[in-house]
């Protein structure tokens, strides 16, 4: 294991606790670190790894696994994921304990009722940004609209909707 990789792990542990809202929040910061400041990879490497993480099933966190993989192979990918996931998981475990203890208290209900609309607002904003990021032509918008309609109007599993989209893509219609 190289010194660079150990340094990366240190940064990841710190970033994980700053990523309120998920890995997308610290993308710019990650880019600054691994491309601009440390030169551990090129900007093109960074973009490719991000696209790969998007194309895989599972949480966006997998992007961090790929940064680890790029620097230290498959063990590096696994270790980077654990180091990035563990600190927030410990915090979430404690938070869930408190929820179990205080869930019925009125101030806790107020806190939850207050945070719910903020959550929905952040979701609307991410959906909006994602739609525009994914759009390469009017066909992309059509696929987005059709997928949303299918998810709202039917109980089709999301994976089926994505599979149909993949076929449309392979046929070269995008």
């Amino acid at each position: 294991m190289t010194e660079d990789f150990l340094q990366l792990l240190g940064y990841l542990a710190g970033y994980s606790l700053m990523a309120i809202g998920g890995v997308n929040v610290i993308l710019a910061e990650l880019h600054r670190l691994v491309v601009a400041t440390q030169g551990w990879m090129t900007a093109a490497d960074f973009a490719t790894l991000f696209a790969l993480a998007q194309a895989s099933p599972g949480p966006n966190t997998l992007f961090v696994s790929l940064i680890g993989w790029h620097m230290a192979g498959i063990p590096g990918g696994v270790i980077a994921t654990v180091v990035f996931t563990l600190p927030p998981v410990i915090v979430a475990t404690l938070a869930a304990r408190l929820w179990n203890a205080w869930g019925e208290r009125r101030w806790f209900r107020t806190l939850q009722m207050g945070l719910a609309p903020l959550t929905i607002g952040l979701m609307v904003a991410s959906a909006w940004l994602l739609i525009n990021t994914a759009a390469v032509s009017w066909v992309s918008y059509a696929i987005t609209f059709a997928a949303a309609t299918a998810a709202l109007a039917t109980r089709a599993p999301p994976v089926l909707i994505l599979a149909v989209a993949a076929v449309i893509g392979v046929l070269g219609l995008v």
């Binding site: 696209a51 998007q54 194309a55 959550t119 929905i120 979701m123 609307v124 991410s126 959906a127 994602l130 739609i131 990021t133 994914a134 759009a135 390469v136 066909v139 992309s140 918008y141 696929i143 987005t144 609209f145 059709a146 997928a147 949303a148 309609t149 299918a150 998810a151 709202l152 999301p158 909707i161 994505l162 149909v164 989209a165 993949a166 449309i168 893509g169 392979v170 070269g172 219609l173 995008v174």
Partner: peptide, 25 residues
Amino acid sequence: AVRNAFRAVAAAAAGLISAVTAKLL
């Protein structure tokens, strides 16, 4: 074909997130 499939899946994934958002909203 692989690149095109990734593009179409990304667009559909944005649609799925929009649908979940609509259900919460």
